[in-house]
Amino acid sequence: MIVQTSAIVIHSLRYGESDLIVSLLTKTSGLRSYLLKGILKSKRGKIRASLFQPLTLLEIEANHKDKGTLERIKEAKILIPYQSLHTDFVKSSLVFFLSEILKNTIREEEVNEELFHYLETTFLWLDSHDNIGNFHISFLIKLTQYLGFYPDVSDMSLSVFNMQDGCFQDDTSNIYCVEGNSVLIFKEFLGTTFEESMSIKMSRIVRNEILNMLLVYFELHLHGFKKPKSLSILNEIFN
């Protein structure tokens, strides 16, 4: 079946000397993997390897056989060009971190247009803003809404966050309960916009604590989730 859809590049992997295998989150068909034969050696082909940088927004025409095998892309072009996402050092480091997160969290072929719209909107926001120190924290928290484990905020006045159950409570009940200043700051992110969340003040230590807490939270609620290898680089940059 020939489909035309917008898509977000999640991951690309070199295959052999000249081929690429790319994972795209498509708006109409969910997560799909494609084999791009000879793309790394072709200089005149319609599809260029540079199109498949992480998080690039594309418009593609593809042949979906829906047999669980690698699909084929017939045509691809930039949907909305980024101005700074792949050229600014801080933003490009964020891009690799976010693409690793998405590679570990989006695994189903189910269509999720709300998730697609969230990712498209937030990447364009990141591309056009400079005050982005809290972006990765806000991004991860809001991402949980689309993955089905956003924290229960009905008892947000309580001081302990139970990561295992995703709720707030008044005392610790397991090893995955956290409290203290990092939880107080974490609460400030819940229900805020990206613009508002960038104004939240915190120390380097607290930012790292919240980020590590969120990654544990993802591990608890997503089978097979692993902390991104780019985490150490991200910590160095935002420190």
Rank of each mutant, 00 (worst) to 15 (best):
H129W: 09
T5F: 04
L36R: 00
R48E: 11
M163E: 06
T28F: 03
W125A: 06
G16Q: 00
S50P: 00
S230T: 15
S18N: 13
N212P: 02
G148V: 12
Q83K: 15
M1C: 07
V9K: 01
M1N: 08
L158A: 08
F186H: 05
A62R: 07
R32D: 04
S199G: 06
S203G: 14
T28G: 05
F123W: 02
F218L: 06
Y118G: 03
L35E: 00
S99T: 01
Y82M: 09
Q4K: 15
R72H: 12
I80C: 10
L70P: 01
N63W: 10
F194R: 07
L190E: 11
S6F: 05
F168Y: 13
K37G: 05
H64D: 11
R204L: 03
T193W: 01
E113P: 00
M202H: 03
R204Y: 11
N181Y: 14
L31R: 15
S138I: 10
R32H: 04
T172H: 08
I60S: 06
E59I: 01
I137Q: 04
K227V: 10
D152W: 13
F116E: 05
H11A: 07
T144H: 04
L214C: 07
E61D: 09
E59N: 14
N162Y: 11
S138K: 13
S128R: 15
D66T: 01
